[in-house]
Design a protein around this nucleic acid. Structure first.
Length: 151
DNA sequence: GCCAACGTTGGC
DNA sequence: GCCAACGTTGGC
């Protein structure tokens, strides 16, 4: 079982939304590197939910990968901000995964604390200017994050 | 609002 | 294939 970190702006889609919905399609990813990380996800993997563009930014919860290799429907929706006219229905460019709510942490684990704990090599999200919205998290880092949240 | 750190696009 | 221009993310 692998760990991931997935960013979302809480105003757009936050942990509260997922808690209410129970599961969600993680669509709208339009970055090839992030897409490829999604493609390497397996059912049963877990992902930290990271609130970006919020005060303060940080990890707020934990999700579970329920389904993989799903076609992202928003690429074919002309009314969606994620519409991609260059993507063909018989050869979709973008896909997504279905995630399930596991838990919301009682406290937020801030980016500042993450920076104090991890180097950019250990945890990509702490690197300044990292725009990737989906990142792998090493097992040891995931355990460290979980232990920080317990204390 | 600024800017770092990219990714994308398009002319050549 | 190179590279300048431009766009986006996201912290501060």
């Amino acid at each position: 079982m692998a760990y991931w970190l997935m960013k979302s702006e809480p105003d757009v889609y936050g942990i509260e939304h997922l808690k209410a919905e129970r599961t969600t399609l993680w669509d709208g990813i339009r970055n090839y590197q992030a897409r490829n990380f999604m493609r390497s996800m397996a059912v049963g993997d877990q992902a930290f939910f990271y609130h970006s563009n919020s005060k303060p930014p940080g990890i707020v919860g934990l999700m579970e990968v329920l389904e993989t290799g799903l076609v992202d429907p928003t690429q074919f929706d002309p009314h969606s901000r994620y519409h991609d006219p260059a993507s063909a229905r018989d050869n979709p460019r973008w896909d997504c995964v279905r995630l399930g709510f596991l838990r919301q942490f009682p406290t937020l684990l801030s980016l500042e604390t993450l920076r104090q704990t991890f180097s950019p090599e250990q945890l990509g999200v702490v690197r300044r200017g990292n725009r990737l919205s989906i990142l792998p998290v090493a097992d040891s880092s995931a355990q460290r994050i979980l232990s920080l949240l317990e204390s």
